[in-house]
Design a protein around this nucleic acid. Structure first.
Lengths: 203, 203
DNA sequence: ACTCTAGTAGAGCGTTCGTTCTAGACTCAA
DNA sequence: TTGAGTCTAGAACGAACGCTCTACTAGAGT
């Protein structure tokens, strides 16, 4: 019976997306979750930091699942990337530009002050990069190239959220998605061309 | 004699880069600047928000100048973009991964809660995009393409800061810079090819 | 029927927050 | 020398912060 815990996590997630870590008070969390302080400290004995760590880890895992869903729908990584950006843009517009991703916000905010939170966000980003990287490898990229390109895509995704929130306009997310798609396509084309040349040379 | 005002701005800039808006108290600011509360409210009568607005605007302008410096050094926008990313990576490493850019951090944090700060950050980002966009136009891109590509580059820059801070490793900034450079180069190549075709057709 | 644990409930702790306010010090024109 | 204006200095305010603490309730196990 962890319904209360779930409500606390969900409320914190949404509040972090709106106001970040330091901008969200536990009073807001308990009010939004309809849970008393006692329950909050029952589920998260180390307090706010432990709650934030759980939100980052659990949200990160669910976004990883979501991306895998997009990736499973096609063997073309460029298309999956483009679709993911488009979905994020839609979400932004429908939520009055509340941040799509609490992880990036919190990570940037507390990277220098809360090392455990930084570590949790690091693990989440790494899991995303690894997942996308594997799909890029499967499509023909070398491991090093695939990882670097995956990191760039994640960076562009997070950065486009910053701009979209600031301008209150999600088009930048879509445009960035298109650019990432053509970048992925170009790198895959290069890799295939190189492979062809090597085959032609009897390699 | 606005030396005190300058010290307050500089201290706030650095503290924002470390802890963001809500994570920085005015006590920290006055301590770091060696200025009493009275002086702070003398120069910024509307308090913390006005101070933050000034930091965003002034830092934004100085980064615009910095980019123009990189851009003036070459007629190749791709090279300027790459060099700018490399410079940022260096800065990150030399500063123990304090954020390079207080604007992105603050903007993402308070976009939903402080509209004036959001507006100030919006103007700064727009000025960067406009500047890079003009250089891309000068190199042969159409206005729409140039603006969209410039926005993607700024997004990738901001996003790579998030990842670099979180991983405590600036390589992602360099890799993203390389990818942005090749993206810019590819788009310019496409534009020139299209122009050639049109000339060949007597257009 | 009794005990034990999980979870609910919220008053209250010490601290720090952004801000206000009063008082004093310096500069320079009149 | 005076007076006005600019800037410095920091004590003090009410509000809000994260967190601790004690008391209570519900239900499972024996």
């Amino acid at each position: 019976m962890a319904a209360t815990r779930d409500r606390i996590i969900a409320a914190t997630n949404e509040l972090f997306r709106r106001g970040g870590y330091n901008g969200t008070s536990l009073r807001q969390v308990t009010d939004a979750a309809g849970a008393p302080t006692g329950s909050l400290y029952h589920f998260f004995p180390r307090g706010k930091a432990e709650l934030a760590e759980a939100v980052i880890t659990e949200t990160g895992a669910s976004y990883l699942e979501l991306f895998e869903l997009f990736a499973a729908a096609t063997s073309d990584p460029g298309a999956a990337v483009g679709a993911f950006f488009d979905g994020a843009a839609e979400t932004l517009e429908q939520s009055d530009y509340i941040d799509v991703c609490p992880i990036g916000t919190v990570a940037r905010e507390v990277a220098n002050t809360h090392d455990r939170l930084r570590g949790a966000a690091d693990r989440v980003f790494s899991s995303w990069i690894e997942s996308l990287g594997k799909h890029l490898e499967a499509a023909g990229l070398a491991t090093t190239e695939a990882t670097a390109l995956a990191a760039t895509v994640v960076a562009a995704l997070e950065g486009s959220f910053v701009l979209a929130r600031t301008r209150r306009n999600a088009d930048v997310v879509r445009h960035t998605g298109n650019h990432m798609r053509s970048l992925v396509d170009a790198q895959l084309r290069d890799a295939h061309n190189r492979a062809q040349v090597n085959v032609g040379r009897g390699r």
